[in-house]
Computed example of a mutant assay.
Amino acid sequence: MSGRGNPPFDLTMTTLFISDLHLSPLQPQTTDCFVNFMREEAIHADALYVLGDLFEFWIGDDDPSEFAAQIKSEFLSLTQRGTPCYFIQGNRDFLLNKRFCQETGVTLLPEHTVIDLYGRKTVILHGDTLCTQDTKYQSFRAKVHMPWLQWLFNRLPFFTRRCIVSKIQGDIREVKATKSLDIMDVTQSEVEALMTSEGVDLMIHGHTHRPNVHHFSVDDKKYTRIVLGDWYHQGSVLVCSPDSNSLEVRRFAQSMTQAAENRPYD
């Protein structure tokens, strides 16, 4: 993993992957790093893939806040200047939908998608579906992804939705405090099953906040799983080219506040 703090300026033939930024008006340093990344790096790339949890929580595409408008503006500027951007919903932004895409030029992808990454078939996803040992979360996930429930939720007043989400987030934090970190990590057999069923030897995902490059073998065939990092203390970017994949960090302009450093694993 590279510790480089400044972005490269020659980004010819690169595809970029990010996830788990958890953008929020309460964390301006993260937003500043993201804006700099969009304007200085993503604009020169072949494509940008956002693999979920871009926001701390996305309550709906009708979010009227200046903050939501700012983030949308960055994506619109990127896509209008010729860099395609693709988005896979995470567990914090599963309500991001068509309106956001229409207003930004971003393309929404299914929960796991196989792409051609410079000639190499690669499966990309947020990663929460791989954490099958966390049965309570998987049950919760199944409920909130019910189309009829999302339809009802989206028709509530925005203020009401925000109150509901605040209560849910508080409940989730309490549950996480008692969970084993291993339970919240991916299940290796699930990783292997997805990769073999899709016929790929490379997987890229986020969600676990454990940036790393994992190599393993199944029936003498070699596989690679790249895990993206979160943006709590610094930016995390996977830079892929035809010849290499580099998991890198992007330092914030200043040190994060103590409150940010105490953010929970998610």
Rank of each mutant, 00 (worst) to 15 (best):
T107P: 13
D134H: 12
E41P: 00
I88Q: 06
R141V: 02
D20M: 11
T12H: 14
L109G: 10
F67M: 02
E111V: 09
E74D: 05
R81Q: 15
S139G: 09
D20E: 09
P110H: 08
F57S: 04
M13L: 09
Y118G: 13
G60C: 04
N97I: 00
S65D: 00
H126L: 03
C131F: 05
H22C: 06
T15V: 14
D61Q: 04
V106Y: 11
C85S: 15
Q102Y: 01
L16A: 07
I59W: 03
L96S: 02
P84Y: 03
K72Q: 14
D46S: 13
L23H: 07
R92A: 14
F34V: 02
E111M: 08
W58S: 10
H126K: 11
L16C: 03
F37C: 10
A45P: 00
E74L: 14
M38Y: 07
T14V: 09
T122A: 11
D53W: 12
F87R: 05
V106S: 04
S73K: 15
S73L: 06
D46F: 11
T30K: 15
L48M: 11
T79Y: 13
F87W: 11
I71K: 10
E66N: 15
L109F: 10
P64K: 01
D53C: 10
E56T: 03
T12G: 03
T107W: 01
P84H: 04
Q29W: 08
A68G: 07
L109A: 06
Q70E: 13
Q89T: 02
I115M: 14
I115Q: 10
I115T: 13
A69Y: 05
S19T: 01
Q102C: 04
L96E: 03
R92F: 08
F34S: 07
D93F: 02
S77Q: 09
G127H: 12
C33K: 08
Q138M: 10
G119V: 13
S73F: 04
K98D: 03
G119D: 07
V35N: 09
N36M: 00
E103T: 00
G90I: 07
I43R: 14
T122N: 04
F34I: 01
H44C: 13
F55C: 05
N97D: 11
A69M: 08
T122D: 06
Q29C: 01
Y86L: 00
L23P: 06
R99T: 07
G52I: 00
D63N: 12
Q29S: 04
L125F: 06
F17M: 05
G82Y: 04
F94Y: 09
D32M: 02
T12C: 06
T107N: 09
V123R: 07
Y118F: 15
T122E: 04
D62Q: 02
L96H: 02
S65F: 00
K98T: 00
D61K: 03
L95D: 02
F55R: 05
D61W: 05
D53Y: 11
D93C: 04
T14H: 06
